[in-house]
Design a protein around this nucleic acid. Structure first.
Lengths: 207, 207
DNA sequence: ACAGTAGCGGAACGCTCATTCCGTTGCTCG
DNA sequence: CGAGCAACGGAATGAGCGTTCCGCTACTGT
């Protein structure tokens, strides 16, 4: 009966922004948009319509498009932000006093935990992987991870043939685990970390 | 300049069905549709428009809807088919003369290989997981897998706490691996099988 | 106080589907 | 041979969504 406005999607409760959109500075607008978009995407998936995101941020679509040229740009910005957080985490882990292996596993748990509650990277990263800014952030993040891995390898705690690709695989896997069962990402991560730990044997494809 | 027909999507080459659609029996129609849909989905993703699937099968949309009430039903039928193949594979593995562990790993490699080249289950299963027929097939498949796992456990080659959920996780993981890197599913599977092998230690979440 | 303007929000546009509908085709039976 | 019917295929319909556009608001500077 309801006509095609976004009332259904909007009917779910979103904390209404306290301050009026137009009272914000340019940087604040961008940040609010990014944060809100992250929440909406996490809740409704990447398909969430722009008008819903705009409304959740207390703005009109026009205002959103004044900050981001397209939905794709918005998603890319979000992805870059998350990648940078990951990179910062990797740097911090490397700088920490703890054993490399422990710093590494703690980082993995932290990131996976965050992914589990607020996953944008999941579908998003595939959508915008061509985007220059994303590729740059991605490369930079990989480099930071590699430094951490190298340290753990040197320590002898990491499986010698482990690479940053394995870490990405692990994140992809924990993400995918959500489709199998709520909370299964924990088990997945346990198994994955287990597999990354230094040890003698390695399975090979049969034949 | 081309107007909005499906010419772009259809321009990619699809082997044109040799026999005329109307010459087929009802069962053949269904099978052809299922097979074609699988190919198209594998190539273009689950978003492939119904008219494209219809054309690839050498039929009109109307004829497709005469076999499957909706796209959802078509996808569900496809998923059920794949699940049944998996189940058959598990049964065969259990019946084989080989050691349980080897039969299990070979099954895993076989299924993952197939997934890699022709993945429908990936996004599809999430879309139709509510579908009764899918749930039934899914439960049945899980049971068959569990029988195989039990045998491997009894043999002592499987990590004692491994369950069918772990196997699903592994499939979800190899599927997700594709997003990380072409061919990375092999590495993922190696790591996963490694993690499932019987052994003493197990990692725990820190703190 | 007032013309000028930067920024706002959301209606309207154009496009892509899933799904429906119906004129057409070709076979069957009387 | 012709009416009746089952199945066909693809045009037409309806809905959702990204993006654009424009009338309106609320300041700014003179």
């Amino acid at each position: 009966m309801e006509r095609n406005d976004y009332s259904r999607a909007m009917s779910v409760y979103y904390p209404i922004p306290a301050s009026c959109w137009s009272d914000l500075g340019p940087e604040e607008k961008r940040e609010r948009l990014l944060r809100t978009a992250g929440e909406v995407f996490a809740r409704d998936g990447l398909d969430a319509p722009m008008p819903v995101i705009a409304a959740a941020a207390g703005a009109g679509v026009g205002s959103v498009y004044r900050q981001f040229a397209s939905k794709r740009e918005l998603v890319a910005a979000l992805v870059v932000e998350r990648l940078e957080e990951t990179e910062a985490g990797a740097d911090a882990a490397l700088a920490s006093a703890a054993a490399r292996w422990q710093a590494l596993t703690e980082l993995l748990w932290t990131i996976a935990e965050r992914q589990a509650s607020d996953d944008v990277l999941g579908e998003a990263i595939a959508t915008v992987s061509e985007h220059p800014a994303v590729q740059a952030a991605d490369a930079s993040t990989a480099a930071a991870l590699e430094r951490l891995l190298a340290a753990a390898r040197a320590e002898g705690s990491l499986r010698p043939d482990a690479t940053t690709v394995d870490v990405r695989l692990l994140f992809a896997a924990t993400r995918a685990a959500r489709q199998v069962q709520e909370g299964a990402w924990r088990r997945m991560l346990e198994l994955g970390i287990d597999a990354l730990r230094a040890r003698g044997t390695s399975s090979r494809p049969p034949r």
